[in-house]
Amino acid sequence: MQAFTQLNGLVAPLDRANVDTDAIIPKQFLKSIKRSGFGPNAFDEWRYLDQGEPGMDNSKRPINPDFVLNQSRYQGASVLLTRENFGCGSSREHAPWALEDYGFKVIIAPSFADIFFNNCFKNGMLPIVLKADVVDGLFNQVSVTEGYKLNIDLSAQTITTPAGEVHPFEVDAFRKHCLLNGLDDIGLTMQQQDKIKAFELKHQQAQPWLFN
């Protein structure tokens, strides 16, 4: 996994609550057996005016000019600012794959759906929870400032605005450690395999029917 340490990134605002994973990556793209290439279909139904299908040449599709991420000022954004319960719905990891492939490394919202939140960390992305009033303030600043960038420092757990305002954020210590070092979860867990084997043996003695 790619490490995440610090980012000074252009911010794109997506002013909606409850953005679900069906919206982030519609189901027809889940038929792929790969984990890359989902970026051009992120937010497909909002982003394009036609109906998207796998295998289309997305560069030739009609763009929806009303969709915020299509505005020229947000091209190249790597920070997504959005509202509560982002990523609700399906557990599809294709959602963070699509956002990551699109170019987002950080997502800021007042709250996230649990499974999506967890999936982000497995893909070198940092979802950040800030209080709703702080998120409101950032939305206001983004809308009036073209080229608005935020500086995100994972090590210090801070977000710094262009005006120098600093917003601290919380992150689980273990997830932070894995992100900062780009650590693969499986490799880490395999270091505990003696403990897993010992647990499994005890568990099997207690509930043998689980191992039929």
């Binding site: 967890n118 999936n119 689980d172 867990t189």
Partner: peptide
């Protein structure tokens, strides 16, 4: 019982465990 992402599917296959809070 709960849903997991694909990275966790791989993790459970490889280790029979899940990292959880």
């Amino acid at each position: 019982a709960h849903g997991i992402g694909t990275s966790e599917v791989e993790h459970v296959m490889a280790t029979q465990c899940l990292v959880q809070k």
